[in-house]
Design a protein around this nucleic acid. Structure first.
Lengths: 311, 311
DNA sequence: TTGAAAGCGGTACCAG
DNA sequence: CTGGTACCGCTTTCAA
């Protein structure tokens, strides 16, 4: 691999001159030509590791998620990457396998890699631990507001929208109602469940059928299988994967249940029995997160910003 | 940020000793204690950028895909990451937006970042250009065999399985048949189309309804809308996203079409009219790719290996 | 406009 | 087992 030094030797120019040219500073036309020839000849590419070493910036951002193979994660990551790459940043990903402990480990690892910032789709941990793990590096949270306003974040109004939609169901006369709620250590799942429960409280319903557990297709399927014995009139499902799974079981049955699903817009039209969808503006969430991160990396002392997108 | 030098000053030990301890070599119990105290005290974390600089290995692997927000990409990336992280590698991702040109740019960028290897879900480019762009760095192809055996690769038998399943349809008496084929510069899409066409040839069918274009949900929906005017008896759909889109349109219609979909196992049970699924072992594909890459990074001169997974 | 030289934070070799 | 030192490839003063 050719280095700047090789170029220096070939052209007879100083090492500093080459570097300056490479960084867009003015050099004489003739030197420019010499350098370019040497680059073409050697196939030189700049070593950004060495560059990072000197500048103290790696131009990398770590995105840490509970699970990569999840519709929400991947669409968020896609939009984050799209925005960040325009600013010269690369995205390094880390799947913490749904474990909060692991999440902290991954953060540590990324810190070693000298990433310039983090985006987290966080699992339940305290703000302090997270703060400590990030050791002051810019970190943006998606889908989770921590107790303390330590971090920039972007969320949707999970609680309100869940409350509102559940209420709609109840206003339609639904009484025997259930929820497939997802994990209890995932913030959004908890918020959605709370919103659901608030609506029930208002209507004096105390005996909802609650299924908690994982957040993927199979969990949804199993939960639905159980719920199909309950002659439900209404059902709230907390994410896309759970909805797919639940609908699989549902499709096999002949019951009619009024279903509300999160992010399930694509699926709703597949099944002949209507379901209600709550759609998050996922691209917008990712873009906003990237934007917040860019802002903070530019100005670490700026005020913490907690963006809530109302849907 | 504390450095190894700080530790050296605090402990009074030499810089080399610290480094040795950090790398797991033997040091006296007492020195070990001193160092550990200093680490705890300063919150020292090793700077892997500096380390890479010296060792010439970044311990990063770039995964470049046409689109991140794609079920296949994401699940492949997930399994790649799972395998690689066990070996100390991080995954840096790059979405080339479906453009072959862009793909080469991204490769260049990743080369600058001194990644130790590449995994590509490649768009149509010649093997030579790719070889040149990778400049000899380990590169594994997923879902594409290049004309020359320059790269390790892992694919499924797209052609055969498509041929076989289409033939099944025809054996059932289907004659008016169509395909939603996806982009013509995506290898798998092309292979699947070829397999489809071979089956048609055998049955002397010359006028299939062919829809080509994008590879996402909306493309599938639009294509299906058009195809619903054709009174088809059978339909082959080349990937997951297209299948979702097509099924959306299909669900609204009252036609009955025998449908074959790729990777659409989760969806098949949603819709009350049966569809046939061709399921790729996506995790296995990712794992195999990671494995091939690890092997090549270990031994760059080993024989090129082209793995075909038969489904 | 250019060249020389001092690091950035590690690793690895050498001598002790 | 330990300390000293020469790099790794680049950026960035400082003089010329």
């Amino acid at each position: 691999m050719a280095t700047i030094k090789d170029l220096s030797e070939i052209t007879g120019l100083g090492i500093g001159t080459i570097s300056r040219y490479l960084n867009g500073y003015n050099v004489k036309e003739k030197t420019k030509d010499k350098i370019e020839t040497a680059i073409a000849q050697t196939g030189y590419v700049r070593n950004s590791v060495a560059r990072s070493m000197k500048t103290g910036k790696s131009m990398m951002v770590a995105v840490i998620v509970p699970h990569l193979a999840n519709m929400f994660s991947m669409r968020v990551i896609e939009s984050i990457e799209r925005v960040l790459e325009r600013h010269g940043y690369s995205v390094i990903i880390s799947d913490c396998g749904g474990s909060a402990e692991n999440q902290l480990n991954k953060l540590e690892l990324m810190k070693q890699r000298m990433v310039d910032g983090f985006v987290l789709l966080p699992l339940a941990v305290s703000g302090k631990r997270l703060m400590q793990a990030a050791s002051g590096k810019p970190l943006v949270l998606i889908d989770r507001l921590l107790d303390v306003n330590l971090f920039d974040s972007v969320t949707v109004n999970n609680f309100e929208v869940s409350y509102r939609e559940t209420k709609q169901l109840l206003l339609q006369g639904v009484r025997r109602i259930g929820i497939i709620a997802g994990p209890h250590d995932v913030y959004t799942a908890v918020e959605r469940k709370k919103g659901f429960e608030k609506a029930l409280d208002e209507f004096g319903i105390a005996d909802a059928y609650i299924e908690t557990g994982g957040y993927n297709v199979e969990d949804g399927f199993k939960a639905m299988k159980r719920l199909l014995n309950r002659s439900l009139e209404g059902l709230f499902i907390s994410n896309y994967e759970l909805t797919i799974g639940a609908l699989q079981a549902y499709a096999q049955s002949s019951q009619t249940i009024k279903i509300i699903g999160f992010d399930s817009i694509e699926l709703s039209s597949l099944i002949n029995r209507t379901i209600t969808c709550i759609s998050q503006p996922i691209e917008q969430i990712g873009e906003k997160a990237a934007e917040l991160l860019l802002n903070r990396m530019k100005d670490p002392s700026r005020r913490v910003e907690n963006v809530v997108i109302n849907i």
